[in-house]
Nucleic acid binder design. Sequence first.
DNA 1: AAATAAATGTCAATAGTGCTGACATAAATT
DNA 2: AATTTATGTCAGCACTATTGACATTTATTT
Lengths: 152, 152
Amino acid sequence: MPLDVMGLFYFAYRDFVGDADALLERQGFGRAHHRVLYFVNLKPGMPVADLLDILRITKQSLARVLRQLIDNGYIEQKTGDADRRQRLLYATDKGRRFFEVLSATQTSRIEAAIAALPPDGKRTVLRFFVGMVEPGDRPTLDRLKLTEDLSG
Amino acid sequence: MPLDVMGLFYFAYRDFVGDADALLERQGFGRAHHRVLYFVNLKPGMPVADLLDILRITKQSLARVLRQLIDNGYIEQKTGDADRRQRLLYATDKGRRFFEVLSATQTSRIEAAIAALPPDGKRTVLRFFVGMVEPGDRPTLDRLKLTEDLSG
DNA sequence: AAATAAATGTCAATAGTGCTGACATAAATT
DNA sequence: AATTTATGTCAGCACTATTGACATTTATTT
């Protein structure tokens, strides 16, 4: 059994998400808020339904998180152009700035970890991650353009 | 910003831990139970305090999880030999079998993802994980013998 | 030997974040 | 006109974490 991969995966992910925890808490936010900010920054104009698919939570769960982010001015909703039922989500300037602060430590951590790898190490790591994702979810990765560096 | 690493890390970890969820739920267990089973299987005879350090939860949180695992016969406690205050944790046969079932899908997923990598891919991935871990936690990784494949 | 500290366990109250069910509205589709 | 879709909201519940307080047993210190 690949106990080493399992354990290191756990520690690495724990420390990775832990980077932002203190900052989030100051705002009364949790990891769910961070995830929403990440995906909305990644794909501005994402409709609520897509976010629900990605996060795999119920709309009631998302509602509270989204409400807090909107009320605090980090995210804004715009009525869809093609489909006026949709509420398209955008980070505000404030939201983008906050996301950058949240991500600063994570970014340093990732870049340092990759810099210590052999050439092409980042590509290997990304390929590993994609291989770990449920095949049914791979189209989602593509739609989010998370696999672009791997296609070429 | 390495948005691709951040996103793929999220999806990979989510699908990885998701493998065991259905099985755990049948027993009325959650991910916390899985983590305890993992670490006790990794290092039989671990004292409670070490588990608390690793999991970074309070003893009151651990207590419930541990109680359920003990009451259901997955884990047993033995009084420490050198220090009789300690309760050393061991998986029972039943506990080891259950952990193997829980890990079967995760193992397949990991092995498939690694098999698709170039030679030395596993080593690169493990090194990435170690690089992501907070330096202060690295001694813990060593104590748990999670870095053995990387030393040579 | 007595006092203190450490490892563990337990009781009680609280918080965060997820859940389900039910219902409402506006807009698109049939 | 009827139905379906995208979204929002209210209410209650569950799980897992939290903090604080206190007890027991054993080890260490004075």
